[in-house]
Design a protein around this nucleic acid. Sequence first.
DNA 1: GACTGCGGGTAAA
DNA 2: TTTACCCGCAGTC
Length: 512
Amino acid sequence: MVILRDAGSPAMSAAPPCGRQTGPLTPARQFDWDINDTSVPRVSRFDEFCEWANDHCQFVYSPDSEEAKRHSSGWAMRNTNNHNVNILKKSCLGVLVCSRGEQCVLPNGERVHLRPAICDKARKKQQGKPCPNRNCNGRLVIQPCHGHCGYPVTHFWRHTEYAIYFQAKGRHDHPQPEAKSTSEARRSQVNGKRVRGIAMLLAGRDSKLVKRENMSRDLDLTPPYMCPEQPPPLIPDSDKGYSNTTCSCPPFECICTPSQQPALSYHPAHHLQQPTADFWSQPGDQHQQQPPSHPSAAMDQSSYFPSPAGGDYQQCTFDGNSNVLQHHPHPYEYPAAATVVENDAFGQIFQTETPIRGSGGECGALLAAPPELYEPQPNTPPTFTELCEVKSEFSEVVKSELQHQQQQQQPWGNPYDRHYPRGGGGGYFEQQQQQQRLDEPMMMSEEDDSLATVPSEDARVMPHHQHHYLAAPNHYHHQVESAALHHGHYEALMGASDHFSFHESISRHLHH
DNA sequence: GACTGCGGGTAAA
DNA sequence: TTTACCCGCAGTC
Ligand SMILES: [Zn+2]
Ligand SMILES: [Zn+2]
């Protein structure tokens, strides 16, 4: 069954640079679907893959999109157990920055924004290592993400036979980490190759990002086209009982107003491109659930894909762990994705003639480290091997120095931690935190589980452990000329606020 | 070794 | 009950 939407519908799609699609720009975007919906709309055109999705946004990718199949993202997203095999949830790990913060400036004026390792073990190793900026004696620390109501931004991925649905919740309150391709390139180049674009690397930028940013500028894309500050809420206000200037942010159900938007918000060139939903598909007669009562969803509401999550809308949800499965003919699993080739970044990375060694001393404090480690060697840009050796050698030095600092009651802290000593702080928790830094690099996040919320009613319908991905034919792709679907679902955010207490898990770790 | 996805489990609200 | 997080496993690269 194919349901055409009015071509002139207010729901017409916008055409941001990321997830680009043809169509007029429309300031008001609305989301016609939610990742948790019982059914999601079929679309006739897909979004271009958006590597730096930010803010509350949604995309529908082709099932053939390698990036989408890999659930890749420029942000460092780690898997989260939401106890729902049909919807993959990932949460942001933030960015690896220098503990000296603003004081640490690379020769090219950029700052160190490394990509946190997804693996906990690897991430632990990263933290506390000396800042790769030769002019700096800071250490690498994680700047956690608080972009989703104080919690890390979350990404949700859902696969159907016909498309891959993506939904992001939250706006990153930290700089972009280096792109994955950059990080991978660096790892693969650790053995000996001379690194020319080190500043670029350390700043966490690659050609793709730069390219996108440039594209963004060229297109003069500004909110609301990129990321509306106040896009329509996913759930009609009337349904949730909020005014349209508020949001619901569980578990606090905060009432945010536009003025409460965090001042610090990073807007990569991301885009709220929505695919054109030409019709709503009906995969079968099962689970005909009432579709969302979106004003914009003026279509046959009986033709939806059943949702693996089932149930109704939830906004700013943090996922439950109900075991919800198959309720839907196209479970989440799919064949292993093919390798994604991202080589242009690599090429460009090593073209910049910016040695890591700078001339100045932007970062003043000295560290009890072997002087040679920091001694300027103006004519010999370091290789990554050197860099890693330095890191490695220095890690022990750092460790002992940290212990010394602790003894001296002058622990170094992560200025990005919510419990970073500010003013007169220094309570029990903070002391514990400091201890944690010394004994064991802080494990920032692990798999958090959450799920794209799964209403329990529908949850029980799904059998457990059926992981079959049905190859997605593209046959519907050209069936209908577009009407549009788009959106701009957005939930007002609290953003990164100091009033949020630091993660309980950290505290748990501290007690060990 | 690192990334990725899965999933059993805990704790707190 | 919901949600965030812990932790281990297995497959892959
Ligand atoms: Zn630094
Ligand atoms: Zn983030």
